[in-house]
Amino acid sequence: MFKLPGPASRVAQPVKSNSSVLSASNVTDLVSRASAGDNAAFEELYRQHAGRVYALCLRLSGDTGRASELTQDVFVRCWERLESFRGESAFSSWLHRLAVNVALSTHRRDSRRWRRVQAVAILPDAPGTVRSDSSDIDLEKAITTLPTGARTVFVLHDVEGYKHEEIANLMGIAVGTSKAHLFRARRLLRKSLEPQ
């Protein structure tokens, strides 16, 4: 029996952007230097965490250009709010939650203002995208074709490990709606991935 790991195990994991293990004290030191205005320290925080934030934004938006813009917004917001980070949770969890909030609020705003261009099948060719050997391009493509609500819940629940209660809270929807979106997403994904 498998079980998808919850946010505590999956979300809080440091980014494996390089082979070195990111020690907590290193991150704490960088955060305190960055919140004192040290740009170099903030750049290092970016290097360590950008991959995690970008992957989230990419899957939530389904568009590489939009994902880059969202990643910028997340780190600008992070810079502005660093002082409010109290170190009660891991920095990576705090940043991840911030990223989800930025992505969701921006999306709500965007969808009211102009239709987002659905970038189907853009993922495999994205420049600067480093993917592991295990990356599942068909699955990534299929995720971008999901309807927005289903995709958002699916990414947060199945990829990022959030619980329905948390997602419902973040998105301002009922738990039942979150579940319905998830089941629909899984159904659609299976339909497009499994041989007919």
């Binding site: 498998f2 998808l4 970016y46 290097r47 880059s68």
Partner: peptide, 26 residues
Amino acid sequence: LAKRIGALPLSIQPPAETWPMISARI
């Protein structure tokens, strides 16, 4: 399906231009 999802990379490198844009904005 869940097994395939669990194997997706959690980190994807953003385009190189992302940091310079952030740097200028902050």
